[in-house]
C-alpha cells in the first residue's frame, strides 16, 4: 500500500537579511506516514514543522529533496484531492458565513451541491457551529475560527488530514472535541498528520511521532518506543504509615522520585517488584500504582533539544504528577 506521506531528504532554506544569508529552516527530513496512522510532529517554534506542512501542501517549494502524498508529487494540485488541510492560525474570508465558506471550498473540490449541503450541515454540527452557520466569520472568536477550520478540512471526507497546530487557540472543551474527532477519524481508517507543541495531545493521540529540533529530524518512531525505552525499570507508588521513613527497610536503596504526605514514588527494577511488594505489606503499607517507567515525551523532546535538566532534580522538585 502506498504511504500517505513520504519525504526524502526534504530541505528548505531561506535567504535573510541584507547580506542574504542562508538560513536552514529544514534539513534532510525523511519521514514515511502509513495510511491509517496518526502521526504527531513535535518541535518548538521555528523548528520547521510549518515549513514541512507548507511544502506538503504545495505552498512553498523545497530547496532540496522531495515530498509525495499518496505517491504523487506534493506540489501537484491533484495530490491535494485526498487531503484536508488546516493551517496554523487559520484566517478565512471574514465577509463570508461558514455556510458560504464551505460552499466555496466544496466548489473548489468539484463536489456535488447535494454533498456540499449535507456535509456542511453535518460538519457544522460536529464542531458545534450550527447556530453560527449564517453569521459572518468576522465576528467569530479564535476558537470558533479554529473549529470552522477543522470543519473545512473535513469537508470532502479526505483520506489524509494535515493539521498545523489544530489545538491552538482552543479552550479545554474545544481541545477535547478535536481529540475526539481525531480518534473517530482514526477508527475510520483515516491518516492524520498533525503538528503541535502541546505534548499531552501527542501522547494520547498518536501512533508515531517525529521530533524536529532547529530544522533537524531528531526522532521518528513509535510513541511506545519513545516513552517506554528498554531497561525494565518500573515506578511504584506506595502509601506508608505516618512514622515510616524512606531511609528505612526494603525501599531504602531505591531511588525516591517524589513524596507527598504518606505517598511515596520510587523507581525500581523489574526483578525487585516481588520483594518490595512483600516489604511494603510487611511495613503496613499498600501499593497504589505500579507501572513501567515511562519517559515523558516532554523529557524526550528536551533531551533531543539539548535543553534537558538532570532527571533527578526535576522529578524530585516536581509535585505529584
Amino acid at each position: 500500500m502506498t504511504s500517505a506521506i513520504t519525504t526524502s531528504r526534504l530541505s528548505k532554506s531561506y535567504k535573510k537579511g541584507v547580506r542574504r544569508q542562508q538560513v536552514a529552516a529544514l534539513a534532510n527530513l525523511d519521514i514515511e506516514v502509513q495510511q491509517g496512522e496518526v502521526f504527531g510532529f513535535i518541535g518548538s517554534n521555528g523548528a520547521g514543522k510549518s515549513t514541512t506542512i507548507k511544502i506538503l501542501m504545495g505552498l512553498i517549494k523545497p530547496t532540496d529533496g522531495q515530498a509525495w502524498l499518496f505517491g504523487q508529487q506534493a506540489s501537484a494540485p491533484a495530490a491535494r484531492a485526498r487531503v484536508g488541510y488546516l493551517s496554523e492560525h487559520p484566517h478565512f474570508y471574514d465577509f463570508l458565513t461558514p455556510v458560504e465558506l464551505l460552499r466555496l471550498l466544496g466548489a473548489m473540490r468539484q463536489m456535488p451541491q447535494q454533498d456540499i449541503r449535507q456535509q456542511t450541515e453535518k460538519l457544522l454540527g460536529l464542531v458545534s457551529l450550527s447556530e453560527a452557520a449564517d453569521r459572518k466569520i468576522r465576528g467569530f472568536s479564535k476558537g470558533m475560527v479554529q473549529r470552522l477550520g477543522i470543519a473545512a478540512a473535513l469537508l470532502d471526507d479526505p483520506d489524509l488530514l494535515i493539521l498545523d497546530e489544530p489545538m491552538s487557540g482552543l479552550d479545554p472543551l474545544g481541545r477535547h472535541l478535536v481529540a475526539t474527532i481525531i480518534r473517530d477519524l482514526q477508527q475510520q481508517g483515516k491518516t492524520i498528520f498533525f503538528s503541535t507543541h502541546i505534548i499531552p495531545d501527542i501522547e494520547t493521540l498518536c501512533d508515531r511521532v517525529g521530533i524536529l529540533v532547529r530544522g533537524q529530524q531528531k526522532y521518528v518512531g513509535s510513541i511506545q518506543e519513545a516513552l517506554y525505552p528498554a531497561g525494565n525499570r518500573f515506578e511504584i507508588t506506595v502509601r506508608m504509615p505516618e512514622q515510616w521513613r524512606p531511609e528505612q527497610g526494603i525501599l531504602a536503596p531505591h531511588h525516591l522520585l517524589w513524596h507527598k504526605e504518606s505517598l511515596y514514588k520510587f523507581e525500581i527494577a523489574e526483578t525487585d517488584i516481588s520483594s518490595i511488594a512483600q516489604g511494603v505489606i510487611a511495613s503496613n503499607g499498600s501499593i497504589v500504582t505500579l507501572e513501567p517507567k515511562r519517559r515523558s515525551l516532554e523529557e524526550l523532546f528536551l533531551d533531543l533539544s539539548g535543553h534537558s535538566e538532570p532527571t533527578t532534580e526535576r522529578t524530585l522538585a516536581s509535585p505529584a504528577p
Partner: peptide, 14 residues
Amino acid sequence: ESRAGYLVMGQPIS
C-alpha cells in the same frame, strides 16, 4: 499576508 489564501491554495486547484 493574512494567510486567507492558504485556504484556497490548499485545495486541489492550481
